[in-house]
Nucleic acid binder design. Structure first.
Lengths: 154, 154
DNA sequence: CTCCCCATGCAACATTGTTGCACAGGTGTT
DNA sequence: AACACCTGTGCAACAATGTTGCATGGGGAG
C-alpha cells in the first residue's frame, strides 16, 4: 500500500478531474506490490463497486497517456500496469519467472548512466527506459531442488 | 537480411526438424530489421505461399521456447518477435516511439555489468534482460520542428 | 433555466491468441 | 508389404482482450 502518494493531487497536476473511478483505479495500481493486468484491475474494482470494463480500459489509457501510470510487458503475452516513476516510486526493473509466470518488482538500480550512454549514440529523444529481467524465481528454484533431492532419497 | 545465420543448423542444434514452415518463419523474423508481430509474420508468409495462422503461432511458441527467437513487448499493446541473441545477433535495446509507434533496434551496449549488479541482490536465477527505450524518434522530432518553423514564418 | 461537456455505461465489434480434432506423410516394426 | 505410430499442419470453433459508436446523466457556464 502506498502511503506516500496523493492521488487526487497527482491527477490534478495533470489536469484531470479526480473522479471516483479514476481514484479507485490509481489506488489499485498503486497499492499493488507488482504491476497488474487490466482484467485483474477490473476484477478487483468490481468487488467493491460496479464499474464497466470499458471504463477501466479508458482510464488506464488516460493515465498512461498522462504519464501517471506505466504500461509494461508482463513477460508472457500480457500487458500490466504499475505506477510510473515519480519521487515516491523510483524506476526499477521487473522480473518475470519463465517457469511460474510471476512478475515482481526488483530493487531500483542506477540506470541513469545507461540512459546517457545510449542517448549519445541515438538520434531520437529518450523519455524512458524499461528493463525486464527474466529467469527463474526463488520459489521455482527451490522446488526444482526439492525434486532433485527427493529423487536421490529413493 | 541476415547472411550469417544458418537457420537449418540453428533448428537442428535445438533438436527441431528444419521443416519448410519453420525455416520460412525464421527467415522472416531474422531478415526483418526490427522485431515484427505475429500477424505481420503471417501476412508476409501468406504472400509467398499459403500457411495457416495457427501454424505461425505454434511455430513462434516453439521457437521462443527453444530460445531461438525472442518475444518482446512492442511498447504499445503489441508483442513482437526478433532473433534471440546469439553470436551473430548481440543483445540490444529496442526503441519505441510514443508518437508514431515505430519500433527499432538500437546499438548494442554493455549491459553485462548491469546483469551482474542486479544478480548480486536478487535471489532468483537471471537468464535474460530486455531493455525497452521509449521516446520520440528522429522523424517525429523533425516533423514537430518543421511545424514550429512554419508557424513562425506566417 | 438551458446548453454543453465530460465521464460513464452498454452493446456490438475487432483483433489476437488457443484448443480440439482430423489428416497426411514419413518412420519403424512385424 | 501391411501395420501402427508420431509429428507437422490445417481447419473450425472458441476464448480472451481491447475498441468503437452511441446513449445518458450530472455539473458547470452562460
Amino acid at each position: 500500500m502506498c502511503q506516500h502518494c496523493n492521488y487526487p493531487e497527482l491527477l490534478d497536476v495533470m489536469g484531470l478531474d479526480p473522479t471516483p473511478n479514476r481514484l479507485r483505479v490509481m489506488e489499485v495500481v498503486g497499492n499493488n506490490t507488482s504491476p497488474i493486468g487490466a482484467q485483474d484491475i477490473f476484477t478487483t474494482l468490481s468487488r467493491t463497486a460496479e464499474i464497466n470494463r470499458v471504463t477501466v480500459y479508458r482510464i488506464l489509457d488516460l493515465l498512461v497517456e498522462k504519464g501517471l501510470v506505466e504500461r509494461l510487458s508482463g513477460g508472457g503475452r500480457s500487458l500490466v500496469y504499475g505506477m510510473a516513476p515519480n519521487e515516491n516510486h523510483p524506476a526499477h526493473p521487473h522480473f518475470h519467472c519463465k517457469n511460474c509466470g510471476v512478475l515482481q518488482c526488483m530493487q531500483p538500480v542506477s540506470l541513469n548512466v545507461d540512459i546517457k550512454d545510449i542517448q549519445r549514440s541515438f538520434a531520437g529523444e529518450i523519455r524512458g527506459v524499461e528493463v525486464l529481467v527474466s529467469g527463474i524465481c526463488r520459489n521455482c528454484l527451490r522446488t526444482e531442488q526439492d525434486r532433485r533431492t527427493k529423487r536421490k532419497e529413493r
